[in-house]
């Protein structure tokens, strides 16, 4: 649990950080909150030659609504999301998710950007961002580009980030009125990654039917998973227990979990079925302003 030698660099600006990444090549890594990277280094799973700490760059930790999006700067720490009343009110799915991540000590340092950039299907924000249909802004030597969340996770622990690029912002479309969301996670204890978890974000039409729905699943496949058929089955339908039970089945169909210490694949499918139904019920209640 002692990492090998590395150099530690503290750029003052994003362009400087990007230049350092280019200068030091493949073996250099961005350091944000450090709560995924440093454990990996202590176990010598990751042995970067250089750590480029972006946490001292000013202006990367904003959270604001602007141009139709909730914009989250990559260095926004989980603890900040937990504590903003307007976020709790308008983005309950996001706050649910944050509160289920690790424990307060980790959340004091861990960042939303790092949670996504790590590309870990066991992390909680990926499913939530899938449900929100978020966009990711990436900055590289040649400027900024925007990647829809569906194209961001490309493989196990791999994202659309190229070497020399930095994830700069997460953009969540501001939900219309009559929207609600919910994150439900089964974990073995606080601080554990999900045995299975479900993120739901939906909006209702004036007649009470479901107009839009996003469903993301955590830790049930090699990549964060969108339950595409489950989402489709909801669209235009009136909420009902029967509908939700059916959608729960479809969410389970979208999952391909593995047996591990958290339980068997079959157990996790049961969890997805049940959590999906519960998250849908709660999301609808929230959209209707009932909770």
């Amino acid at each position: 649990m002692i990492p090998p030698t590395f150099d530690y660099l503290v750029p003052a600006t994003l362009p400087e950080a990007i230049a350092l990444l280019h200068e030091h090549g493949d073996e250099a890594k961005v350091l944000a909150g450090g709560h995924s990277l440093i454990p990996a280094m202590r176990l010598r799973f990751a042995e970067p030659s250089h750590l480029i700490d972006i946490s001292h760059i000013p202006g990367l930790d904003y959270i604001r609504e602007e141009g139709g999006f909730l914009k989250i700067g990559t260095m926004a720490r989980e603890v900040v999301l937990e504590d903003l009343p307007w976020i709790s009110e308008r983005y309950p799915l996001l706050v649910d998710t944050t509160k289920m991540i690790a424990d307060p000590q980790v959340r004091n340092l861990a960042t939303v950007g790092g949670n996504l950039a790590h590309g870990d299907p066991a992390n909680d924000h990926p499913a939530t961002m899938l449900a929100y249909r978020a966009e990711i802004e990436i900055i590289g030597a040649s400027g900024a580009r925007t990647v829809p969340i569906d194209e961001f996770f490309t493989d196990f622990f791999t994202t659309a980030l190229e070497h020399g690029e930095i994830l700069s912002e997460i953009r969540i479309p501001i939900p219309p009125v009559l929207s609600g969301g919910c994150y439900l996670k089964v974990e073995r204890k606080v601080g554990d990654y999900a045995a299975a978890a479900v993120a739901v974000q939906l909006s209702l039409a004036a007649d009470g039917s479901i107009e839009q729905a996003g469903i993301g699943l955590t830790n049930v496949a090699a990549l964060p998973t969108r339950a595409v058929n489950a989402e489709k089955a909801l669209r235009g339908q009136q909420p009902s227990d029967a509908l939700f039970a059916h959608v729960g089945e479809l969410a389970a169909d979208a999952s391909s979990p593995a047996d591990d210490l958290r339980g068997s694949a079959e157990y996790k499918l049961t969890l997805i079925r049940e959590l999906t139904q519960r998250a849908l019920r709660r999301s609808v209640e929230r959209a209707q302003g009932r909770s």
């Binding site: 176990l43 424990d103 554990d192």
Partner: peptide
Amino acid sequence: YEELIYDDDGNILNGTFMDYLLPTSV
């Protein structure tokens, strides 16, 4: 929560606090 788990080859499967579970105040 707690149990040290070995596979048939004697590999310990939960040799860190990530998987060797200790309860917290929660």
